[in-house]
Design a protein around this nucleic acid. Structure first.
Lengths: 145, 145
DNA sequence: CATTATAGGTAAGTTATATTGACATATTAT
DNA sequence: ATAATATGTCAATATAACTTACCTATAATG
């Protein structure tokens, strides 16, 4: 806590810049794969969430992505055309639509993820699990700030 | 090193999502300030770099931002209209332009930075300096991956 | 049962940020 | 003299988002 006093503005600026570059690089590794399927970063993010949260609802997707439903809808339509997602109505509440990647979708995700994974792996190659845990911990706090 | 084997895909996916959310949240805190001056995220990033690297050249800005000069130029023109940046020719090589924030520009940056700083500070409130160092270390490796 | 709330869809127009390609100028280096 | 570098600019286009407005279907509540 007291140690915080030694965090200078310059270090904080540096951290903020790194947060941007880290995000940008991690999400641009897969550009060639995205081009192959004629999709973009917005699609990649949706595919990522569909892989993490199988059967996620539209409204959950919206709150996670923090975009409007018009914007999400454009992306989902493209993914339908690509034939990589399917929908299932909730059995209890049929207003709710659950979204899933099909087999083709999962394969495309793996192509994307492989490249992102490579970057993270390389980053963690000579890190201890404690360092990784600390990284995760701080990142989580930044998000929940 | 061996510990890495225990890094499951799910954890990596989670890290990647956090990297995105951490970036997004950190760079959206200042939205109200940006609106006040009718500028956007692209301008914020340039202002941030101008504050970090006083007198940075155009080409350095371009490589740091990884955008085209046409794109950067639009932003710089807006900042000129806002009257918050100045240029100085390099004394040795007069082709090179050094860009600086003027006093007004520095004040606007401080407004933006205050909010971002608050988020990072809150995140680090109960973190040890070691955790912060680890966070920085891993992030750096992700960038250089 | 009537009303209200929720989940989702859609249409039109607009904005922010970026791209590609082409070309121009000034200055420095070979 | 020529080539390379640093920067600027015009035009057209793409991507991803936005706002505003309105729509259906279903569920929850009085």
């Amino acid at each position: 806590m007291k140690e915080l006093l030694y965090l200078k503005d310059d270090q904080l600026k540096d951290l903020i810049e790194k947060l941007f570059v880290g995000y940008r690089e991690t999400f641009s590794d897969s550009k060639k794969i995205l081009d192959k399927y004629s999709i973009g970063l917005a699609h990649q993010k949706v595919i990522h969430l569909l892989s993490m949260y199988e059967g996620i609802s539209i409204s959950k997707l919206l709150t996670k992505l923090k975009v409007t439903k018009q914007s999400l809808n454009r992306v989902l339509k493209d993914l339908i055309k690509l034939e990589i997602i399917i929908f299932k109505k909730d059995e209890m509440d049929t207003r709710i639509k659950h979204v899933y990647l099909n087999e083709k979708g999962k394969k495309i995700f793996e192509e994307i993820f492989l490249l992102q994974k490579k970057r993270i792996y390389n980053a963690l190659l000579d890190s201890s699990s404690e360092e990784v845990i600390n990284f995760d911990k701080v990142l989580k706090k930044i998000i929940n700030g």
